[in-house]
């Protein structure tokens, strides 16, 4: 379970992005995190993994309270898929990129190989194992970036704009993939259609606070609420006149 209580985050330049934000996510839930630019989505994700430290408030993952001293342990429990896969794939080969986290946590090479073989087969990307990451297509990079986190088996995975840079077909493949990810998922996205398809619950952020939250269908079909939060209805619900 992920529990955030009264979280406030301020940048060094004095800009306070999160203001007393509280929320909780149950195990196995898929939650969409939506909001206009600057609402605090990315800041929240970075704070969850201890890249940014809170001014006040607490973050608890499976009973472990976030603290400067236990960030390593915390990062074993929560994985982040960054918005740009190029930021996440920095090793010389796809194999080494997926192995990176496991090696950092001291897993034996035999187990690493076993786990990588399994995850790549599951995702249908076995052929990419020895390729250089920068030679992959956008969709392949995204899948490998997800694999680098899935292989570590965290209890919570947060995704920062997972459908950005993807063509419609690859986006569809990603939605299928995410649907089959068994972990707790927090998906920060502007792709409201994907959130509608994928999420059990949606949390709307505005000015660093939770503006609304509830069942994905209830929230994402509420035009007034979305517009108040600087958003609009998902494309699939908009009437398009041709």
């Amino acid at each position: 379970m992920l529990k955030i209580d009264n979280l406030s985050v301020k940048y060094q330049d004095g800009n306070q992005v999160l203001r007393g934000l509280s929320l909780s996510i149950e195990n196995g839930e898929t939650v969409g995190l939506i909001g206009a630019n600057g609402a605090g989505k990315s800041t929240l994700l970075m704070t969850l993994v201890g890249i940014l430290l809170p001014l006040e408030g607490t973050i608890e993952i499976d009973g472990l309270l976030q603290d400067k001293k236990n960030l390593r342990e915390l990062r074993e429990r929560i994985g982040v898929v960054f918005q740009n896969p190029d930021d996440q794939l920095f090793m010389s080969s796809v194999y080494d990129d997926i192995a990176f986290g496991l090696r950092n946590y001291g897993m034996s090479e035999e187990n690493i190989k076993h786990k990588i073989d399994y995850i790549m087969k599951e995702l249908g990307v076995e052929k990419l194992q020895n390729m250089s990451s920068h030679k992959l297509s956008g969709g392949e990079k995204r899948i490998i970036a997800i694999a680098t986190i899935l292989v570590m088996e965290p209890s919570v995975i947060v995704f920062d704009e997972p459908s950005s840079f993807l063509d419609p077909k690859t986006r569809r493949r990603l939605i299928h993939l995410l649907r089959n990810v068994p972990m707790t998922k927090l998906i920060a996205t502007h792709d409201l259609d994907m959130a509608l398809e994928l999420c059990d619950r949606v949390i709307v952020l505005k000015d660093g606070q939770v503006y609304a939250q509830g069942n994905a269908k209830d929230i994402l079909t509420n035009q007034k609420l979305l517009e108040e939060a600087g958003l609009e209805l998902p494309f699939c619900l908009q009437r398009i006149e041709l």
């Binding site: 993994v49 890249i51 990062r75 960054f82 930021d87 996440q88 570590m152």
Partner: peptide
């Protein structure tokens, strides 16, 4: 900026400044 983001991605996967290599 890019190096910063890459470093964050590394930290999120347990990187603590050690050298990562195959056994």
């Amino acid at each position: 900026d890019r190096a910063d983001r890459i470093y964050h991605a590394m930290k999120c996967r347990g990187f603590e400044g050690g050298v990562i290599f195959s056994e």
